[in-house]
Amino acid sequence: MRQLAMLALAGFREALRNRVTVVVAVFAAVSIALTSVVMDLTVLSLDRVVTDFGLGVMSLLLISLAIFMSVAMLNREMERRTVFLIVSRPISRSSFILARFLGIMVTLTVLLAAMSAVYALQMILFDVPTPNSVPAAIGGIWCQLLLVCSMGVFFSSMSGQLTSAVAVVGLYLAGQWTADLHVIALKLGPITGAIARAGYYVLPNFARMDFKPQAAAGQDVSGLEFLNGLGASVGWSLLFLVGATLMLRRRDFK
């Protein structure tokens, strides 16, 4: 347990040394610059644009980073053979991958917190009232990060970086529209309809964890709605992590 924590923290430290923190600066720069531009252009529902935009940029940056980090982690360790130095200690492969996953999540969580602080500052700066559902939207981003990371780790446990990245991006994009699949299924033929419906049940539904629209519209997010998203995220992540463990157990480190 102690070893797991140490290893996770080592991952966090590595990320810091590799200067992932620049994404926070990027976020601050992009979001403040563009918001200023937008403020000059639009008069219409300005608050909504500022709220939506900040959350959107935050989510885009962090999801990309999550995909990048999770997909590269295992492959890099294998390629550089640093994995030998960890796995030759009394540590199971499952603990190794779990610790690395936690390391990425710690990093992303810290970055999300930092970005949220920048975001809050920005809301004050531009004098925009913060809707009640903004914390839920940020929590939702965290849920999506958790899911994306576990998917990245899962796919990279059985294939290369590029394949894994494509798979995760694909699932992420599909996950935005899974709700629509159900609707589409009704309009399709029996076979294609069945496939679409299967997709609806099988694909992780990212939209369930996305509370940005509510935040932008100033609507509230109920506790139940949020728990629903959190539950889906945690459930799917566990599934992907167990899958990754099973794959890794049968793989040679060479």
């Binding site: 140490m6 080592a10 053979r81 130095l85 200690r89």
Partner: peptide, 24 residues
Amino acid sequence: PEAPVPYEHLSGEEYLFLQASLAG
């Protein structure tokens, strides 16, 4: 290992502390 490639972002001492913690 043969021609080992350790975590290069760590100092020698930090690497050893990591190994010590992994060794329990």
